[in-house]
Design a protein around this nucleic acid. Structure first.
Lengths: 337, 337
DNA sequence: CTGAAAGCGCTTACAG
DNA sequence: CTGAAAGCGCTTACAG
């Protein structure tokens, strides 16, 4: 309002104004520190007058807890990533941590560079939301004292904290639901991309089919988005004796598949075809889709990240509830034919 | 791999190993600094051996350029915000800046707290992607030497760098397109939410209608998402002489409106109804919608942010191209009736 | 080009 | 409870 200060106030200036030592100021803003009520009051008054805010950058030099948490993200453009990032940033913020996001989408190999950046900012932890950084960079981070938290990344890395979904159970449920809906011929709309989550869902879906005596038709696209869903529909649904139930690796694929099945192939869903997706993105709930899908436990994932930050080591896999909508016949309805 | 160091190497250790001063190490990692090739080589070798990375936290204490850039975001769950955040983080990263995101979605008033956080981390700039922080907090940031960059935020704040879209021109184009498609009765699916962008689109759309001698029907929902689009369809399309062309404030609303118009009201698009949206989210391109929409210049916005960070002050408003798809009849096709 | 020194803004034993 | 001092890891005039 008055003379605009060129730089923010420092603890030293607050100390001077309050007539106390810089240590006293520091203590006032440190949670469990011992300061008398009187000193604290003087400090607070001075701080307010100078619009003082502790410099977290400087604090991070000595205090681990105020160092940033790095989020390695990609494809922020896709609903799943947006939802996860939303849950994560919200949670970290509530915990008073600074979230720094590194976008690794441009170059699939860039995950290594991202970790180098995390190292440069002395992040206290790095959360790998996607991408697969090279093992030696992961080791370097861990050696430097950082926690590395992997969300739904495949292989077990030594020293890495994993947060995992129980894909096996989910895939069993998917197959069961399709069979209960009367689907005899079952297919999987998969992907050649081979990211850990995608690969795990594929493997467990096929395993579950076999366990129930079914031999699923498997189709694989290049990616796992809307366009691949459309391709899947064309590839799977045109021959004779086409599948009656399809599990799509992602909701995005399911949306593409449904659009193509209805508009071009003139199939009715769920009468002629049952579809299940994964991620429970907002579009799954849109009237145009009504897609039955597995919900990702975004908030629970975020909660686990915080637990790990606090030193706890949660073990069990997270459950994904199947959200029922209209793309799968309920057991009572008769199947087609 | 070998003995895991509890903490990362410091410049002092590198200096010791290389047999030079700490200044020499610092200079080696500073862009325009004067170091002999020989010294630099020694330093680099030692740095590699110790896996040294400059501590940007510490560097931020004295160098403005390595202080973080704060991104005040919200609704990361929505396509528009995801797309913008994606473009921004990508660009900042390429520029070697650290992007710290603060999620202000929980509480609309939380924008003030977010700014306080930006102040605490001595961000060199804060980018307001959404939310409207209180004026005095904005002043505090500016007084503390931070750049405040507002993307599509309404009012002119003193000292704030604005990045703006030419909504007036876009809205004129929308009305023109609808009229060229033969739409006589025109409506606006608006919102009571009143965020700056939304309000501006509304006002300019109505202004453009009047300029072309049209009196649009205006409906307003609570928000600007899919559900409000559905409501808009019910409210606007049921009476007699319903609108033949509707502009929706957002693509999300347009999707909801289209679904409701087709599924429940049995209207054909664009035969019975032309629809235009805004944002050009991925779903607009899905086969189920084929929505004609204005594209946000995400990359250009990000480029401007960088320009402002570099001290330039770009002035003109950004253009939004109208992306033609199938939800508006082209001028040649005859309108219905 | 190079090093010794002071400074950036904090925290945390260490005495009192 | 409180202050003087050393430390966190960097940068940048200042001499040489």
């Amino acid at each position: 309002m008055s003379d605009p200060a060129p730089r923010p106030a420092s603890a030293a200036e607050v100390a001077a104004l309050a007539g106390v030592s810089r240590s006293a100021v520091s203590r006032t803003f440190t949670d469990g520190a011992s300061v008398s009520a009187r000193t604290r009051a003087k400090v607070m008054a001075a701080a307010e007058a100078l619009n003082y805010h502790v410099n977290h950058l400087a604090r991070g030099l000595s205090k681990d807890a105020s160092r940033p948490v790095c989020l390695l993200a990609s494809n922020l453009t896709r609903p799943y990533h947006g939802l996860l990032l939303d849950a994560l940033t919200r949670r970290l913020q509530a915990a008073g941590r600074m979230a720094m996001v590194i976008n690794v989408s441009t170059d699939p190999q860039s995950a290594g560079a991202a970790l180098a950046q995390a190292l440069s900012y002395r992040a206290s932890a790095v959360v790998v939301m996607s991408g697969t950084p090279p093992a030696d960079m992961v080791t370097a981070c861990i050696d430097a004292g950082q926690k590395v938290i992997a969300i739904n990344r495949g292989e077990e890395w030594p020293g890495v904290h994993h947060i995992r979904i129980d894909y096996r159970r989910a895939m069993q449920e998917a197959v069961t639901a399709l069979r209960a809906a009367g689907c005899g011929r079952i297919a999987l709309a998969g992907s050649r991309k081979g990211t850990p989550s995608l690969a795990a869902r594929e493997a467990f879906f096929i395993e579950a089919c076999h366990a129930q005596g079914i031999d699923p038709v498997v189709w694989r696209g290049d990616g796992s988005g809307y366009a691949e869903g459309q391709e899947a529909a064309q590839a799977l649904l045109q021959g004779q004796a086409p599948p009656e139930g399809i599990f799509c690796l992602t909701d995005l694929m399911a949306c593409g598949l449904m659009d193509m099945a209805r508009d071009t192939l003139a199939l009715a869903i769920p009468r002629d075809l049952c579809v299940i997706g994964f991620d429970d993105i907002p579009q799954a709930g849109w009237a145009g889709y009504g897609l039955t899908s597995f919900g990702q436990p975004y908030d629970r994932i975020a909660a686990r990240v915080e637990e790990i930050l606090l030193g706890e080591e949660p073990a069990s896999r997270l459950e994904t509830p199947l959200i029922w909508r209209q793309s799968v016949r309920s057991a009572k309805e008769p199947p087609r034919g």
